[in-house]
Design a protein around this nucleic acid. Sequence first.
DNA 1: CTATAAAAACAGGTTACATCA
DNA 2: ATTGATGTAACCTGTTTTTAT
Length: 287
Amino acid sequence: MGIDGDTSNSALVLRLGLSSTVESPSKPDNNHIPNKNPSFLKLEATSFDDEPSLTLGLSGGGGAMATATQKVDVKPAAASAGEMYPQASSVTVSAVSSFSSGKAKRERELSSEELMEVEKKNNSSRLSDEDEEGVSGRKKLRLSKQQSALLEESFKQHSTLNPKQKQALARQLNLKPRQVEVWFQNRRARTKLKQTEVDCELLKKCCETLTDENRRLQKEIQELKALKLAQPFYMHMQAATLTMCPSCEITSGVADGKRNSNNPFSMASKPHHFYNNNPLSNPSAAC
DNA sequence: CTATAAAAACAGGTTACATCA
DNA sequence: ATTGATGTAACCTGTTTTTAT
């Protein structure tokens, strides 16, 4: 049984190594991110700079102060996209305390996009659908077939997006950049999950094979032990030949011959008979 | 040149909702 | 009509990388 664990472990390590190489492309691909901000932010700002809530955030100059103010006013917009902005400012105050800092960070991005998007919604039939129920809690939209297809298409080309691509795709799909971003994140995760499942199946099969092999070898050992007990004499020679596979045995035959000449019990041929007749004595896979 | 903080992006995990059998 | 399973959008948290100071 100890053998089982050992072999499967080594197989596991090997396999994981392979799978990790499969997944690797995402990181190197992300290196286009660095110089995105200037143009990206500018674009965002121009598209919605007439909103009062935005001016709050921007006026902070980008410090902790700015994030705090944005955290306050953004979330209601996200939670209730269909509602008017005037309401947002009043609702937020009560909601602020429950937001984590991480969330606030994300909302900062969302704020600009959200505002821009809500504006769009007035003329977007598909987005206005979810507005109606987005009054409380998390809203969940279903992407249309076309949107999914386009996202898939884009994902095939590159599994990560730079800000410009994200922006363009979002415009094309009439979605928020954040939604595109989330979709890609989830899509990457699904891809990885699938790959992991495939790897897992492979490992299972590998494990089964090794288990069978192990069982077979254990059985063979039992047989040989039993034989040893039954024929102590014989086992002297057996010991010499047991570790050899048939192909090796040919070379050992010479040695046997030499030894046989001196051996009063010259039974050189016996081992061969043994091997030929014993169904358990298959050559090991290694040979 | 180095140290540091802030910002952005991502991975991994989780939650909540929609859909279907 | 109800319910459990499944898929997935949205979210949270921690980590890494980049950039500005």
